[in-house]
Design a protein around this nucleic acid. Sequence first.
DNA 1: CAGTAACCGGAATTCCGGTTACGGTTCGCC
DNA 2: GGCGAACCGTAACCGGAATTCCGGTTACTG
Lengths: 194, 194
Amino acid sequence: MRSDALANQRKIVEAATRLMAEQGLEAELTDIAQEAGVGVATVYRCVGNRDQVIETIARDVVGQMAASFDEAEAGDGGVDGLRALTERLHGIVATYGWVHAALIGGRLHAELRSEMRAVDPLRRFERLYARARATGRLRDDIEPEAAAALILGSLAPWSARALQARGDARAVAEAVLAPFLTHADTDRDTEADR
Amino acid sequence: MRSDALANQRKIVEAATRLMAEQGLEAELTDIAQEAGVGVATVYRCVGNRDQVIETIARDVVGQMAASFDEAEAGDGGVDGLRALTERLHGIVATYGWVHAALIGGRLHAELRSEMRAVDPLRRFERLYARARATGRLRDDIEPEAAAALILGSLAPWSARALQARGDARAVAEAVLAPFLTHADTDRDTEADR
DNA sequence: CAGTAACCGGAATTCCGGTTACGGTTCGCC
DNA sequence: GGCGAACCGTAACCGGAATTCCGGTTACTG
């Protein structure tokens, strides 16, 4: 592949990501091409048809999410790992906006769908949460399943946007996890911030 | 309008709601007509074109949400009101599935969009939360804004589904609010459950 | 119970966005 | 610097979903 074609490929994927992040997966191909500053045909040559464009982006998101979970699972299993994971996930949705939401509900090719399902964020987060709770810095009166649903719920576009308005990814993760920390721990953190 | 036409209108809206709840807003008109047991033209006569079908459903959702908030604001402002609101909201998303999520991100007519924005769930929930916190049964180390984002985040389709799997709307609301109650209060509730 | 206006279902049509074909342009190796 | 292959943008094509049209049917009124 010639270097200009490669550059176009990158431009197109970036443009598509940007557009789909705000409009959802149904962004039009002509718009994507325009946003990338190329013609429609170039999209077909450099990335493929509409489905393949979506698939490319989907793979990006799924890959990044999976990697974040892998990393967290490889860590020491403490609360800090959970915080880092939350932070990374919020970083991802900040970039991909509506894409990750659409991926879960939309119609995807069976193959990609199963790949997505394999990540199974709720379950994996739940396990990580349970593991971290054993360190004693998380409240023990809340079930990991409910905690996972709440924390990952904060990735919903409307919540994520509201939270992002208040600070950087680190601050967001902090705010999201706070309700689950033991009082002693939140006190410590609060003091540390000052 | 003749009585059979009125009956059809109801059937169509219900069918569209059911279909869109699981498939998203892009459900096809022919499928909707079939699900309702009528011809396509009947959809146009009784409800209108595709956009108007969506608008009708959207109005339902927005109306129910707004009513829920109105009711909560008219209440005594305690934690129980918050719990009831959360319960109602989860009931709504259980019925409308992907519709409410799509409404926020999708392309809507400016008019309806602003109507939706007028409900402004995050802000209204935040105020209710702040008010309820004054009663002393909610933790005071969590900001209302963050709490609102987390609690309303639980309405995200993936979280809502996971939570619903564990029990009825009341149990869901309970689980969602638990992290925000003071310890004394959660203890009391936990004991009451047994 | 008959007349009529409103209603119905399904076929025909329009419309719109994805896809492809084609003539001009640019990269990169010599 | 020139040549060929690979690349580009535009405009025409195509399929499928939205919308409309039409002949038959059904609910209300007197």
